[in-house]
Write a protein that binds this DNA or RNA. Structure first.
Lengths: 210, 210
DNA sequence: GTTAGCATGTAAGGAGTTACATGATTTT
DNA sequence: AAAATCATGTAACTCCTTACATGCTAAC
């Protein structure tokens, strides 16, 4: 509720912006949105919906119209109110520095099509700087301790390092595309990525969760 | 205390197994160990140390010997007790299915040198299956929803997918190495990864797999 | 008509963060 | 001797999960 780490708020508002939905379905969409695969539980979702309802950001759809439509309480379909839409827009177009934290970034990114290029660049570049700071600290700590580590620990750190490096490259490509023609290589998802800067990259983001 | 998600217990015992340390220093080591870079707070660490102390798994080092040594309360250096060592060994050699969750996996991996090859294979393979399940669900949900997603969401899912694929390949290489001569390619960290299945590629690996 | 799965919720508790409070040691 | 930073700790609060409790709806 507060103003705190409410990734959920943004995510729920964003999904309901696409189309009205009931909680059960919302959860499924949420799970693929929030860092691949955290199984968000109902114990989190339903109270959150309640809170959004209380704030007047969402309302039950179908209320007031046909009384026989959803009638006897089964699913409860929610939709955004006018304030909800405004709220979403302001959240998504005014990304604080929190927007480049691991999980928030994913959510912000997923709603990029509702923002302007300037906002997108801001988020992408913020995220990249964040990761580059990490790389920095990572590399120094690796050289600092390189002697006294066994092979397994080194292998682990190496893999983590490469994962972050890969994500930086990914971001760089997105930033370049965004700066050039807006997202040329994203415009037609069916075209098999013609020639562009080889974004097929193989290396991956670090472990999921973060 | 509980038996639950005590990643911390394993991590702390493991680090103290290497050498005695005080909390402040422990935290730094912990942060590079626990999924690259979570800044674990003192509010978590110190109570955890207290709990381990209460369980008799660690003790204050230097107590009983020279009373003037650490004397006036500055740092408190902890070391493992005999029970602590046993506990660590049993945790590390009997990995439950929890060992392939995102964060626990890292910690287990970091202490691989204290285990036997059978345990290592069990953990690596368990982790790989876990990720492959994810890929499965990932891919089905991607085809299920492929039409109604905008380019940004697709780009995000694609990147996530490739990240997981990359980790699976990494695990596969480790498993193969483990099965062949034990970790031949890990034995000499200075050798620049001779010929093996090209896992070195820091930049834009040619791989293209997927 | 009963099982299985959809759908909504609540209560208890775990695990961690922030903010606060305090003292010791090192650097300038 | 002041400032910075090392070091330890506590209290309140947040976010989330687990386990539970309940009812509706579809399939067999």
């Amino acid at each position: 509720m507060g103003r705190r780490g409410d990734v959920l708020e943004l995510a729920v508002l964003g999904l309901l912006h696409e189309s009205p939905m009931h909680g059960y379905e919302l959860r499924k969409r949420l799970n693929s949105l929030l860092g691949a695969f955290r199984a968000l539980s109902y114990g989190t979702l339903y109270p959150a919906l309640k809170s959004l309802l209380g704030q007047g950001l969402i309302r039950e759809a179908g209320a007031g119209q046909g009384p026989a439509l959803t009638g006897k309480r089964g699913r409860i379909v929610y939709e955004l109110t006018a304030e909800g839409k405004e709220r979403f827009q302001s959240l998504v177009t005014q990304p604080g520095p929190a927007a480049w934290e691991d999980e928030r970034f994913n959510v912000h990114f997923a709603f990029f099509s509702r923002t302007d290029a300037a906002t997108r660049l801001q988020v992408l570049e913020g995220r990249r700087s964040r990761l580059q700071e990490r790389l920095e600290g990572f590399r120094t700590s690796m050289t600092r301790t390189r002697e006294r580590l066994d092979s397994y620990t080194m292998e682990l750190e190496q893999h983590g390092l490469e994962s972050v490096e890969r994500e930086v490259r990914w971001l760089t490509e997105l930033i370049d595309s965004e700066r050039a023609g807006n997202m040329t290589h994203l415009e037609d998802p069916d075209r098999p990525r013609p020639t562009g800067p080889a974004r097929s990259g193989v290396h991956g983001a670090p472990d999921r969760g973060r």
